[in-house]
């Protein structure tokens, strides 16, 4: 348990988290590994885990008939895979595939949601860390939508 606490505290996503909050998070967390090509989760699965990446890159993919799988974002060390666990219906809306060997902290979504509900201070602290991720992805999506590199026809 001590080892996990150290890993969580040292992870950039949890930087400056208080010891008490860290203990609460670690109570829901475990170390996980994925090999290249493994899926962390697939579209439609319940969003019952979230992943804080320590090493390796994960591709977020969407598949469409006739188009195959398309990657719309990759994330790596220091980043988060999965925000769908935050809001109902807690379901993944894309596939997450390991591009390389992944080492990550997996956090049980039900467990952490319950703790946030019980302790809104923890909830607020975690929200402050997750909301910027959501905003950044929204910005990125806007830029991708603009297709700024494309030639207008």
């Amino acid at each position: 348990m001590e080892g996990l606490e150290r890993i969580v505290k040292e992870h950039v996503f949890f930087a400056d988290l208080t010891d008490d909050f860290c203990k609460l998070v670690c109570g829901c967390a475990k170390n996980v590994r994925f090999e290249a090509g493994d899926y962390l989760f697939r579209e439609g699965d319940p969003a019952d885990q979230l992943y804080v990446i320590r090493e390796g890159r994960v591709a977020m993919e969407l598949s469409a008939p006739g188009h195959g799988s398309m990657t719309f974002q990759t994330v790596g060390e220091g980043e988060i895979v999965g925000i769908s666990w935050l809001i109902p219906p807690y379901r993944w809306t894309y596939d997450a595939k390991a591009l390389e060997r992944i080492r990550a902290i997996s956090i049980d979504a039900t467990c952490i949601r319950r703790k946030c509900e019980d302790d809104h201070d923890l909830g607020y602290e975690l929200m402050k860390r997750f909301v910027p991720v959501i905003i950044e992805r929204l910005h990125a999506t806007r830029l991708q939508m603009l297709d700024v590199y494309g030639t207008k026809s």
Binding site: A59, S69, T71, H139, D147
Partner: peptide, 14 residues
């Protein structure tokens, strides 16, 4: 790159 088929193992994103 902004988007890629699954065969691309590099970064995707802005």
């Amino acid at each position: 790159v902004d988007h890629a088929m699954a065969a691309w193992h590099g970064n995707v994103g802005v």
